[in-house]
């Protein structure tokens, strides 16, 4: 790669560094794999930089490489669930289930004081994220950390947009439930 391309690649990396790091960090099943994941993703992206189209989202493009590298690394530690990703229609049917959560006292507190609650429940949140099914975890993180559009997430993971919406909702609900449970079980 010539110097100009290398400089361009480096310049594009700078503004997305935090997102890429956080994404790899929380997508990795094992924290010791994070550096491997980042290294593999960057090397692969660098080699394929000629395929990147200027003007499109570099963040979405790079996070795709991080996703693949993380999925490969995670295979050594977890069984990638082949769970059925729910479809758009099914997701919408279940959306009302969020109501059940709003009745919980703890959840109300979480909504009122999220920063204070999360300061105490940070480790519980990270563990809850880690235990999400692989693709659901990826979808949640691509949205929460990567701030990607549903369409971009769908492209990264090669799944329908409806699936992204459904899985994202399920991830959010699962995390909220885990946080509530964690808070209630604390001494």
């Amino acid at each position: 790669m010539d110097r100009r391309s290398r400089d361009r690649f480096t310049a594009l990396l700078t503004p997305i560094a935090q997102a890429a790091q956080a994404y790899a960090r929380h997508l990795a099943w094992n924290r010791n794999d994070v550096e491997d994941i980042l290294q593999t993703a960057l090397l692969n992206a660098y080699q394929k930089f000629g395929d990147y189209t200027e003007g499109t989202s570099f963040k979405a493009w790079l996070l795709q490489f991080v996703t693949y590298a993380a999925f490969n690394a995670n295979r050594r530690h977890e069984q990638i669930e082949e769970h059925e990703l729910i479809t758009d229609a099914e997701a919408l049917e279940r959306l009302t289930a969020v109501e059940a959560l709003t009745h919980e006292v703890v959840y109300d507190e979480l909504l009122r004081q999220p920063d204070r609650m999360l300061a105490r429940l940070g480790p519980a949140l990270q563990e809850a994220v880690r235990t999400l099914p692989a693709k659901r975890r990826s979808i949640f993180l691509l949205r929460a950390i990567g701030e990607l559009r549903y369409r971009e997430i769908a492209d990264v993971l090669a799944v329908p947009v409806g699936t992204v919406m459904g899985e994202l909702w399920r991830a959010r609900k699962q995390l909220r439930e885990a946080l509530c449970e964690s808070h209630e079980s604390r001494p």
Binding site: Q18, R25, H26, P114, L118, A144, I145
Partner: peptide, 11 residues
């Protein structure tokens, strides 16, 4: 809450 969740997942 969603903003705080994302912020809690910083590297």
């Amino acid at each position: 809450l969603e903003t705080s969740l994302a912020a809690s997942l910083a590297p």
